[in-house]
Each structure stands twice: as C-alpha cells, then as structure tokens.
Amino acid sequence: MIDIVLLVLKIAILFLLYLFIWQVVRGAVADVRGSAVVPAPDVPLPEGTRPVVTRTPEERRRLREERLTERTESGQVMDLTRHIAPRLIVEQSPIVPVGVVFPLDGWITVGRAPNSDIVLDEPFVSSTHARLRPRDQVYVVEDLGSTNGTFVNEKAVTEAPLRLDARLRIGETVFRYEE
C-alpha cells in the first residue's frame, strides 16, 4: 500500500516540478512579449541637466527681439534674425540621453561643475570646460583651458565658429549644432 503511495507521490512530484518550470517559462515569455509593445521608458534626465525647453513660436519671436538688443562682448548689438533657434542636439553620450536638445540662448557654459549651463558629469570633462557665445552672426565655441580639449568636427579647437550641422565633442558627448 505505502509503496503505491510512494510511487504516486514520486510521479506527482516530478509532474508538478515540470509543470512549475513550464508555467514560469510561459509566464516569463509572455512578459517579454508583452513588454515589447510598451512604449520606450521615459528615462529621467541626469541630475543637473537643464530640461529640454520647448517654446511656442510666440515666445521665440519675443526672445529673438530681446536678443537683438542683447549686449555682446564688444558691446555691439547682435542680429540673430537669421537664426531661428540655435541649439545643440545630443548625438551620443554616456550620460545624456541621445536626442536631448539644448537651446542656445546667450552665453552658455559647458562643464562638470554643477553651476554650468550644460552639466556633463563625465570623467573627461573639466569643471569649466567650454563656453558657447554669440559673436557677430554666429555662435562660437571657446575652450576654457580644458584638460582633454574641445573638438569641432573632431579637430581640437581653442575657438571656432559653429556652422550648421557641426559636430561638437566635449568629453564623450557629441552634439550636433542646428539653427
């Protein structure tokens, strides 16, 4: 009698074990399938990164007018009417999600220091690494004596104007310049 019970138990245990494994695999695979249709996660921006500013056309026009009277280095008045919206777009970066847009607006500092306008907290970036500022009709990038250099189209620069679609690399982060 007890032998039959034991035999039944033995088979039942094996059966339940495989049922368990099968069920877990099935459930887990359904999870994988299900997660494929879930939209991409909204990755939070790293701390210190300025949020993406989206402005209405109205605001943009007003800003442009203000910028017309903005003081530049030599005190000259700048005409940025040609520029619709100068901006840097992240093309690759170990810390900033690709596609993040940094609208350029006046003088912009880039560096690891938390008070920079664009904070790049990565090892190859100096605390105050570079500065972007409008000069004449274009935005100019200046290297502020950084350790690892500032690159425009993969050429180390101390000061260089940014042309449309120029690639600006600071540390491991590559930006594309757009207007």
């Binding site: 034991l6 138990l9 245990i13 339940l16 368990f20």
Partner: peptide
C-alpha cells in the same frame, strides 16, 4: 505550487523511511 511540491516531498521522505504517513 512550490509549497505543494515541498509538502509532498517531505511526506514521501518520511513515508519512505518509516513506512507511514
């Protein structure tokens, strides 16, 4: 399910040794 397997295994170890449930 895991608990069921564990209880059954436990019962059968005891039964296998002392021949009683």
């Amino acid at each position: 399910l895991a608990g069921a397997v564990s209880t059954m295994a436990y019962v059968s170890v005891y039964a296998g040794r002392y021949r009683e449930i």
